[in-house]
Design a protein around this nucleic acid. Structure first.
Lengths: 246, 246
DNA sequence: GAGTACGAAATCGTATACGATCAGCCTAGC
DNA sequence: GCTAGGCTGATCGTATACGATTTCGTACTC
């Protein structure tokens, strides 16, 4: 890589022939490991050994170590001192907590975004929802989930509070880590979800108050959780410490 | 200084409560730097240089580096590649976002805890609130804040969802990092806060529904933010992107 | 005089090496 | 046959060393 002479003029954002210069090795290691976890290559319980990962990636152990600590902070892996890291397991209780938390923060994010949403935003969201409706015939959980994220992302774009958005994204990440599809795929739920989306859009168009919007958005997420809980046996539900929509 | 910090650091909900047995140097470095930030020794904008910190602490740069990345993840410092870390600044907008987020997650945490709260819990909280009321005469923001955290900690003890509690603790941490006292000390607000605490306890005793409890708890936090906003000039408030209680 | 190009110092990013700690196994004793 | 103790291998924790990148000061040119 040759030395780049500083270009005169205001081109502060230099794009040195690289569309994918993914920053430091720590970040690349983080992305690579995360991808393998989400992709299912590293299943829950898989032992993440620093030396092995470093060898596979062609890096030293230091960036890998940093990547693992970061994944630990985001709950993708569990870490034990002098022992090592393992991929976080699939835990129904954890799924429940995550969904409940999401219902709260998504509800707030939607309510905060509502006053700032434009007709164009709603049109875009409606288009995404139409794609979701069409996909119901040949149902693909992965695609449906992706469209669902896109739908809500459009609604959240105007959210003025980045902290709330960050919490939403953390929840989404965690759901992915928990392989949400294995939990959230409940027959008939997808169709309901599309209908709820349409109702939510109508509510936003009507200029409803923030309270109503929050309630609807929260209930939307909670309904998915309820559908999941309904399929579990009463004993299983018994030691579930909370209800979906309190 | 009554150290009643909620849970130092651990963003992970699976934290094994690693006792107090002077863990790894990374953890000690983390604790030491965090303490200096919160204690005011490192003021916002202070440049955290790896080599210097390592020298002061007697450690190598590696544990210090890890500590800094962890502090970055918790927003105590900002980090820029190949440049370094600086202590996060006091930003009124950031304060606003944090308070708004706290109003939401604290409201949810209180509502989730409400059905499980006992008469004994309420008695303990009432005792703490009494101490707050007494402290009004010789007001000390630090002590008042500590008691306030204790009051709400009692109410949250029964919260079944650890994720929500984690979000609350993150918010509290951030407020500390922002030196909340300089913001939140508004004449008269402390007295109102004590009264609102009493009202909240009465509501809990009455067996009110989760919705009512959530609304009250959220409004309690939002009122502090409103009091802060009310003291700012209209121009300052103009580019504040959200209102406290939406 | 203003702006630009160059260079040196400072700082972070990463690699390698060694020490500390833990889990599992094997052996010896009862 | 069973249990207790030590041993060994594996893995993480930390230190040191070197290379890459940025920043800031300085001299030069228009």
């Amino acid at each position: 890589m040759g030395r780049h002479a500083p270009e005169p003029g205001g081109a502060a954002v230099t794009t040195p022939t690289a569309g994918e210069t993914a920053g430091s090795k720590s970040e690349r290691a983080y992305a690579a490991i995360k991808e393998k976890i989400l992709g299912g290559e590293y299943t829950p319980g898989y032992r993440l050994v620093l030396a092995k990962l470093a060898g596979d990636l062609g890096f030293s152990v230091v960036p890998v170590r940093e990547a693992i600590r970061r994944l630990e902070a985001e709950n993708f892996v569990t870490f034990e001192r002098n022992v090592g890291a393992t991929v976080a397991g699939i835990d129904p209780t954890e799924y429940l907590f995550t969904m409940q938390t999401l219902s709260i923060v998504e509800g707030a994010a939607t309510a905060l975004s509502a006053p700032l949403i434009t007709a164009s935003d709603i049109a875009r969201a409606r288009a995404v929802n139409a794609a979701m409706r069409e996909s119901l015939d040949h149902f693909d959980p992965i695609r449906f989930t992706a469209l669902n994220l896109e739908f809500h992302s459009v609604l959240f774009e105007n959210c003025p509070n980045p902290h709330i958005l960050d919490l939403v994204h953390r929840g989404w990440n965690r759901l992915q880590a928990l392989r949400s599809s294995t939990f959230s795929y409940v027959p008939g739920r997808a169709k309901e979800s599309v209908a709820e989306h349409e109702a939510l859009l109508a509510l936003l168009e009507s200029g409803a108050g923030a309270d109503d919007v929050e309630r609807a958005a929260r209930a939307h997420r909670a309904a998915t959780l309820d559908a999941y809980l309904a399929r579990r046996s009463p004993e299983q539900r018994a030691h579930v410490p909370v209800s979906a929509s309190y």
